[in-house]
Design a protein around this nucleic acid. Structure first.
Length: 697
DNA sequence: CTTAGGG
DNA sequence: CCCTAAG
């Protein structure tokens, strides 16, 4: 034990590998497959346009303050005290803003989960409209657009060009007046109405939603029943009492710089606070549930978790087109899209219509064309093109901001401010990046048919744009397990290709659209579904008020299921697209480097999995490949002049150790067991240490 | 799944 | 950080 301790607390020499691979703990992997059905791809026809515009806008905006995470972490201010109740039932908002931005900020209103009842087999509006965790983030932003501009916009021309190749099809309207109007005219919202709604949103809007429009609640029964004590009971709506949030977080205003690294012990950094936080959050978030806690002024709790890790787990098993290469522009696209998150706030999302620059329009068209390329086989696009073409007009949308669903974070008091910020950042990143998909609302009704043209849907340049809204919904991928007919989770994911949130500071953050040859999606088994749901409602962390009789009948219908049902058979046959998200860049902190060096000193290079297990087992975002890469980078860093180095400077002491360890292990190659090696007068620990360390975990 | 390397 | 050939 003495030896163990010694080893545990510091480097005591290079160590010889001793444990046969076979005896090592089995690896755990989390399947990671994100897929989007063909028809779903087309779902962002409109969104693509929006995204493009966002991009354009971003492009023209000052690029100075567009960093979001990473370096920008420090700049992120979380004003928890801005969380407010928009309504009695607890709409809240989490305001994220950059510290150096006082004007328009990107504000994310957290909409409440509104339960909606719907029968998977019955899309009738008659069904009890129980509101079931629908996450809606309506944009308060849709403003009237300048029709004239649209008509003459260059974007139109660009797109028109694309559409030119499309055969003319049944055009729904020649003039605006002919446009097909939504059937639900009685639900027309006025401008003011929508505006109000956007604040209180969910409730009102979803109330108008017919059953078939029920938004999907991201529910994962099993996860909800998790026994992890850190999971707080989720309050739902105004029925359930809120679980008190740690008071200490009340009105937290995080403004200090990220100093957790400095304050935390250098060694074993990931066995201390960060990992605790990480783990707890992960578990909490594992619920995959969007919880609502009206009263909590505190930040967070999130359910994004899996998004993060899934993003880089198990990538094998499916083929991917590398959008990074095939659609290089996408990188920038999302890059810019995301910047609205924290940077110039308003500018980021506003004025899309005000910048009909050539460049911009061009990019928009590129964006569009790319999407088009991806979903070439989708007739919906053709339809849209037809519409664009025949009508020769574009709908101009202005989205001031998106609201993100509320999320929660649990973090120990001992956590540093820096870790809090990181945690929030991760949550936000994950939620926006992977946990949401975009919905389109017209007059409060969700437009479900992705294949419809805007015109067909009633969205036209001369339409009442104030009735158009966008929503952010939990990604149906979270609900996959619920849909699993045979117990195995659906592999289909419904990730939205439109990633509203991206790390502007991370150019690498891209979306990859890939193809998946896998056959048609499986249909959800409604029985199972309901069963699962009921299990869910009876879970300890029941989010729904069971007094609510209807809740028993609630069926969480992921948007995906509905859309799947609505898929044109032809589309199902077509190759499905997969969207994978590049992981966010997370520079290694000094303490991480320290841990890495320490581990490598002992384990040597070439045992990255062990290094991972040993020193980064709790840092889920660091894979052994990451560690290997980092080591590679460190090695490179050692060899370049300090002037050439970027980022947080690594102490020379560490670099020296890196070099020494590398030198040592590159020479010392596979050492015979129990061998004793001397290095720098340090005796290498015996192989027994390795065993002991394993035990120590 | 892990490694090792190129990108 | 991604991607992949190899093992």
């Amino acid at each position: 034990m003495v030896l163990q301790k010694r080893l545990d607390y510091g480097f005591s020499g290079y160590q010889v590998p001793a444990i046969p691979r076979a005896t090592r703990s089995p690896r755990k992997r989390v399947p990671f497959i994100k897929k989007v059905e063909g028809n779903q791809i087309s779902a962002f026809d409109l969104l693509a346009t929006v995204a493009g515009k966002l991009l354009l806008d971003k492009e023209s905006a000052p690029a100075s303050n567009n960093s979001w995470s990473a370096e920008a972490e420090d700049q992120l201010e979380i004003e928890t005290n801005t969380v407010k109740e928009e309504r009695g039932d607890g709409n809240q908002s989490l305001k994220l803003e950059t510290s150096n931005q006082d004007s328009s900020i990107a504000e994310f209103f957290v909409s409440e989960l509104v339960p909606q009842t719907s029968d998977p087999n019955n899309s009738s509006n008659e069904s009890p409209s129980l509101r079931n965790g629908a996450l809606m983030a309506t944009s308060d932003c849709l403003e009237r657009f300048d029709a004239q501009k649209l008509m003459n916009g260059k974007i139109k021309n660009e797109m028109g060009g694309l559409a030119c190749n499309v055969e003319t099809g049944p055009s729904l309207c020649g003039t605006s007046g002919d446009c097909i109007k939504p059937a639900s005219e009685n639900k027309v919202s006025t401008d003011e109405e929508l505006y109000r709604t956007d604040k209180a949103s969910i409730g009102e809007v979803t109330d108008k939603c017919p059953l078939e429009d029920a938004l999907v609640l991201d529910v994962k029964p099993s996860a909800l029943v998790s026994s992890d004590t850190s999971i707080q009971a989720c309050s739902y709506g105004d029925h359930n009492p809120l679980v008190p949030f740690p008071r200490k977080w009340d009105d937290v205003n995080v403004v200090s710089r990220d100093d957790d690294e400095k304050s935390s012990p250098l060694r074993e950094p990931f066995r201390s606070t960060p990992h605790i936080v990480d783990r707890r959050i992960r578990k909490i978030l594992a619920s995959k549930y969007w919880k609502v806690s009206p009263r909590s002024k505190n930040v967070i709790y999130s359910n994004y978790d899996k998004n993060l890790k899934s993003g880089y787990r198990n990538r094998s098993g499916y083929k991917r087109l590398r959008a990074g290469r095939n659609y290089p522009f996408k990188k920038r696209k999302f890059l810019y899209c995301s910047s609205e998150l924290n940077s110039d706030g308003g500018t980021g999302s506003e004025g899309i219509s005000d910048s009909p620059e050539k460049n911009n329009t061009k990019k928009a068209s590129i964006l569009y064309s790319n999407m088009h390329g991806v979903t070439k086989e989708s007739s919906s696009l053709a339809d849209q093109h037809k519409s664009f073409n025949s009508r020769d007009s574009n709908v101009k949308l202005r989205i001031k901001s998106f609201r993100v669903p509320e999320f929660f974070i649990e973090i120990p008091e001992s956590a540093t401010v820096g870790s809090l910020k990181r945690t929030v950042m991760e949550a936000v990143t994950a939620i926006l990046g992977d946990g949401l998909c975009v919905g389109v609302l017209l007059q409060g009704k969700k437009v479900r048919d992705d294949n419809k043209t805007l015109l067909q849907t009633g969205i036209s340049c001369d339409n009442q744009m104030d009735v158009l809204g966008f929503s952010l919904e939990p990604n149906s991928s979270h609900t996959s397990p619920l849909l699993s007919p045979g117990g195995s989770p659906l592999k289909l994911r419904h990730d939205t290709p439109l990633l509203l949130a991206r790390n502007p500071a991370n150019p690498g953050l891209v979306n990859r659209v890939t193809c998946d040859p896998s056959p048609e999606p499986r249909m959800p088994n409604s029985t199972n579904f309901i069963e699962n749901y009921n299990n869910f409602v009876s879970s300890p962390t029941d989010m729904f008020d069971k007094s609510t009789t209807e809740s028993k009948e609630l069926v969480v219908v992921p948007a995906m299921s509905m859309e799947t049902l609505a898929v044109d058979p032809a589309h199902q046959k077509s190759k499905q697209s997969v969207v994978a998200q590049r992981r966010i860049r997370r520079p290694f902190s000094i303490s991480e480097v320290e841990a890495l060096v320490q581990a490598v000193e002992k384990l040597g290079t070439g045992r990255w999995r062990d290094v991972k297990l040993r020193a980064f087992d709790n840092a889920k975002h660091r894979t052994y490949v990451d560690l290997k890469d980092k080591w590679k980078t460190l090695l490179h860093t050692v060899r370049i002049s300090p002037q050439q180095r970027r980022g947080e400077p690594v102490p020379q002491e560490l670099l020296d150790r890196v070099l020494n360890a590398h030198t040592h292990w590159s020479q010392q190659q596979p050492l015979p067991e129990s061998s004793v090696v001397y290095l720098n007068s340090t005796m290498i620990a015996s192989s027994q240490c390795d065993v002991d360390e394993k035990i120590l975990g």
